[in-house]
Amino acid sequence: MKKIWGSLVFALILFAGNTASAQCSLCTKTAQQLGEGPAQGLNQGILYLAFTPLLIIGVLGYRWWRNNRESNPVD
């Protein structure tokens, strides 16, 4: 469990300074009309909303893999 939390903290620190563009064409046009500050906030919100389901899927996949590995030992 400590490895999972450590990985999560590392990923959040890694993505904190990232300037990835996660906007569709409609969101980009809207963000351009809002200005620089709100556009960055919109982009960070989109990245946050995309990261959360991926994190949940990753944790569930890891737990499934770990439980499956323990029940089927390889000789």
Rank of each mutant, 00 (worst) to 15 (best):
Q40C: 05
Q40N: 09
A50S: 09
R63C: 02
W65I: 01
L34D: 08
I57E: 02
R69Y: 07
F15S: 15
L34A: 12
V74C: 13
N67S: 06
L60D: 06
L12R: 11
E36F: 03
L49G: 08
F10P: 08
I4G: 05
F15K: 13
D75C: 11
G45R: 04
R63N: 07
M1K: 10
A22E: 05
A20I: 11
G17M: 06
L42M: 09
I4S: 10
G45D: 02
P53S: 02
V74A: 14
N43L: 00
N43H: 04
F15E: 11
I13G: 06
I46L: 06
F10S: 11
G17E: 04
T52G: 07
Q23T: 15
G6P: 06
Y62I: 04
N43Q: 02
E36M: 04
A22W: 13
P38W: 03
W64T: 04
S71E: 15
T30N: 12
K2W: 09
G45P: 05
L54W: 09
F15C: 10
A11F: 14
Y48R: 09
L12I: 14
T28H: 09
G41K: 03
W5I: 13
A50D: 12
L55T: 09
A16P: 07
L55A: 07
W65Y: 10
G6W: 09
N67K: 06
I4E: 10
T19C: 10
S21M: 15
G35N: 00
K3T: 13
Q33S: 12
F51I: 07
Y62M: 00
A11Q: 11
V74P: 11
A31V: 01
G37C: 07
P53Y: 01
K29L: 09
I13L: 08
Y62S: 00
L8S: 12
V9A: 08
L8T: 09
A16V: 07
L12D: 02
T28E: 15
V9D: 07
S71M: 14
A50V: 12
A16F: 07
A22N: 15
Q44K: 09
N67C: 03
F10I: 08
I13F: 11
V74W: 14
G17V: 03
L26Y: 13
N72Y: 13
L14I: 08
P73L: 06
I13W: 03
N72R: 14
A39V: 01
E70Q: 14
P73V: 06
Y62F: 05
R63L: 00
A31R: 03
G61I: 01
L54S: 06
Q40K: 10
I57H: 01
A11P: 03
F15W: 10
V9Y: 08
A20W: 14
G45W: 01
I56L: 01
L14Q: 00
A50I: 12
G17D: 06
I56P: 02
Q32M: 12
L49H: 03
P38T: 00
R69G: 04
L49D: 08
L54F: 07
W65F: 04
S21P: 13
R66I: 04
G35I: 02
Q40S: 10
L60G: 01
L26T: 15
G45M: 06
P73K: 06
T52F: 08
L26D: 15
T52C: 10
I46A: 01
I46N: 03
I57N: 01
R69C: 05
L49R: 09
A11D: 04
K29C: 12
S71V: 15
W65L: 04
G58L: 02
G37R: 09
I57R: 00
W5P: 08
G58I: 03
L55S: 04
N67T: 05
Q23E: 15
